[in-house]
Amino acid sequence: MQKLTLARSVDTPEVAFDPESGNFRLEGESYPENALDFYGTVFECLNQYIERTQGPIEAHFKLSYFNSSSSKCLLDIFDIFEAYSSVNGKVCVHWHYQKDDEDIKESGEDFADDLSLEFKLIPFD
């Protein structure tokens, strides 16, 4: 399985997934015109990974802005993680937010609510 690397664009975040380490990173702003076009590749890659391996996933989200369609796609990513977690896959979500950005912090809390995953809110300067 190959590494996934999507470069950051004006309206899409940088995405990287390394199947060797299980390290997933999504960073930047997300408001693509067609969210499924962009996130479809990410879903596919993660689904492939959880089907083939039993390794851990360390997922890092560092977003400064995302639109509603992107939020739905993030929910779907958490769904994939939850599905993996329910069959004993180890997943830890790191939700990074800028210290004074209450909105991004709160959206992390909203996502984490009722989610059966380890979900850490991490402030940065």
Partner: peptide
Amino acid sequence: LKNTIKLTAVGDGAQRKLVR
């Protein structure tokens, strides 16, 4: 329903951020 509630809360947060 749970996802709709989450999306609404997150969407409201994003709007607040834009307005601010």
